[in-house]
């Protein structure tokens, strides 16, 4: 079956999640077609998509596609799916993907599964496993429709290594369909630093860090480990930090090697975004906090004392390599 991957990128920097979906698409399509749809991207970027598993790339690189918005995107993607008879469309489970996918599904009379953690091709029948009930439940669905659209959570599939010898067609989209939505302004937060999605180490603070100052205790540890500071929803909602730092069901999905949860109780809604971290460490005053059921290492104690001691002790360790 033909699989279409809707590629996500910011200013031509491709999202790792899109590489993961190309790998997933490759596995499902087998010898058949994997098409990448790249709207608002440039041709060299399209080349990278071929290297990561696409057989062909459909690219809207003309200026009209820049900063293009979802309403036109849906029309555009629907045309491409119909033209190429794709049976499965994959997008990342991000604000853009989760915005686009369900609309595209309705436009195509297709089934829709959001937040998938597994998609299998069972002799031609696609099975979608997704998380529900705040991450406490998994459901496996199949659709009666010919086409299905799915968003996939980051970090559940491994990207294929780049193979620059792969060749394929790169096709330009001709014109951009009209959009009923007008973009007035986009405010992107300073992304000079490492993105949470790409971080190998994340130190996340929750309500237990007791205020915006709490993050000042976490930052030195993050810096020392070359990591990034994140948060549960509570500090974001209380205005202690930016919403862009929220990790969880309705925030970011992260997959670091090391996730240190500080003053976070471990609600399933939070774990939905970090449960795939390789090693979770929890620091919490409550020995019964749910987070300890997910953590490999736990410290029952006050973060204000434990974290600085941890930071000092790590910096005193002999350097590795």
């Amino acid at each position: 079956m033909t699989v279409l991957v809707i590629v996500e990128h910011a200013d031509n920097k491709l999202a790792t999640a899109s590489f993961e979906q190309l790998a997933l698409a490759r596995g499902i399509a087998g010898k058949q077609n994997v098409i990448a749809l790249l709207i608002g991207g440039e041709r060299p970027v399209a080349q990278t998509l071929l290297a990561r598993g696409a057989d062909s790339v459909i690219v809207g690189s003309a200026a009209v596609f820049n900063g293009y918005n979802s309403d036109g995107w849906v029309t555009c993607a629907a045309q491409v799916v119909r033209e190429h008879n794709a049976s499965l469309v994959l997008a990342a489970h991000t604000p853009s993907g989760a915005d686009l996918a369900p609309r595209l599904a309705f436009r195509l009379n297709a089934g829709c599964a959001t937040g998938c953690v597994k998609i299998e091709n069972n002799n031609g029948t696609l099975l979608f496993t997704r998380a529900a009930h705040g991450g406490n439940v998994r459901e496996t669905l199949h659709f009666k429709t010919d086409t299905a659209v799915a968003t996939v959570r980051a970090g559940v599939y491994d990207a294929l290594p780049a193979d620059t010898t792969r060749r394929g067609e790169i096709v330009e989209l001709s014109d951009a369909p009209a959009s009923r939505i007008r973009v007035i302004e986009r405010k992107r937060e300073d992304s000079a630093g490492l993105r949470l999605e790409d971080a190998k180490v994340i130190i996340a603070g929750g309500r237990g860090i007791n205020g915006p100052e709490g993050f000042e205790v976490l930052k030195p540890l993050a810096e020392l480990l070359g990591g990034v500071v994140g948060a549960s929803r509570v500090p974001c909602d209380l205005g202690w930090c930016s919403h862009a730092m929220q990790i969880g069901l309705t925030g970011k999905t992260v997959t670091p090697e090391l996730y240190i949860a500080v003053g976070i109780s471990g609600a399933s809604h939070h774990l939905a975004g970090c449960g795939n971290a390789k090693t979770i460490v929890a620091i919490n005053t409550d020995k019964d906090a749910a987070i300890f059921r997910e953590a490999k290492f736990g410290v029952v104690g006050d973060f204000a004392k434990v974290v600085p001691a941890l930071t000092a002790a790590i910096s005193a360790l002999p350097k590795t390599i």
Partner: peptide, 15 residues
């Protein structure tokens, strides 16, 4: 859609 299965995710970590 047809729901094929509903189950709890498995947990293996020991703290």
């Amino acid at each position: 859609s047809v729901r094929e299965k509903l189950f709890a995710p498995s947990k293996t970590v020991q703290c």
